[in-house]
């Protein structure tokens, strides 16, 4: 098992954001975490990457407890977090953003770095074309691509992506998720994906967890969840059931 969360609770100041969350991610899997806005999905990722200290519970990565480790050290352990809202560094170029993505890797030679950046350009041709453009000039989809590519530059064992589809047109969402799948296959990277767009997320993942108001309410293989009528309960209060009959 790569990552395990056991009974984790966390809050922002007075607001309890997640309660007693337990989940597992195995090596090489794509696992998705779905649920409505405010259900606690992003908070779960923040706890794993160390941005938020949990008030209770354990986070175990490759057999090591990390719930008290600093974010910059967690990155070194091999967890790369592509946060919500892309967070491309606006005043740096595409290339510089990618270089910083590899900043945790000690002893990476200049030549290897260039080779890897070239490889990212192959994966994301838009980035290659815009390599010298400043971050803020990119479009939403390009920023999302850059966010993911930058996350990959750390050569993570596990990549966590927070709402890669947010604010993107459906065709681009499709591209992003297909790339995600390719990455997982090609590098054997484990992926933990947080998505609001449930159908899409489930269609590329192996397993999924459903979150509602800070708790995990359902889990199973993606196929099971896709056909589970309760899944849309989490989104529309069960309204679409009537539609599907």
């Amino acid at each position: 098992m790569m990552l395990e969360m056991k009974g984790v609770s966390a809050s922002y100041d007075a607001v309890q954001a997640i309660r007693d969350v337990s989940l597992e991610v195995n090596e090489g899997e794509i696992v998705c975490l779905i649920g409505a806005n405010g259900a606690g999905k992003s908070t779960t990722l923040k706890v794993i990457s160390g941005l938020l200290r949990p008030n209770a519970g354990e986070v175990i990565f490759e057999g090591k407890q990390i719930q008290k480790t600093k974010p910059e050290e967690i990155v070194r352990l091999g967890i790369s977090h592509v946060p919500e809202g892309r967070r491309v560094l606006p005043g740096l170029t595409v290339r510089e953003n990618l270089e910083l993505g590899a900043s945790v890797r000690k002893g990476l030679s200049k030549a290897d770095l260039n080779k890897e950046i070239e490889h990212q350009y192959e994966l994301f041709p838009d980035l290659g074309r815009l390599r010298n453009a400043l971050g803020w000039t990119l479009s939403g989809g390009q920023q999302q691509m850059l966010g993911i590519a930058r996350g990959l530059m750390a050569r993570p064992k596990m990549l966590m992506m927070d709402e890669p589809s947010l604010g993107l047109a459906p065709i681009i969402v499709k591209q992003v998720l297909e790339t995600t799948k390719r990455i997982s296959k090609e590098f054997g990277t484990t992926v933990l994906l947080v998505e609001q767009n449930a159908s899409m997320a489930l269609s590329i993942s192996n397993r999924g967890y459903v979150m509602e108001t800070g708790r995990i309410t359902m889990s199973g293989t993606s196929k099971e969840l896709l056909s589970n009528p309760q899944v849309n309960e989490a989104y529309l209060g069960g309204r679409s059931r009537k539609l599907k009959g």
Partner: peptide, 20 residues
């Protein structure tokens, strides 16, 4: 560049492993 990254977005810099 790490200092620039820190100035532009502290949280993201942390997530990139930069000691902010």
């Amino acid at each position: 560049k790490k200092m620039q990254a820190t100035a532009q977005d502290k949280t993201m810099a942390q997530l990139l492993g930069i000691p902010v």
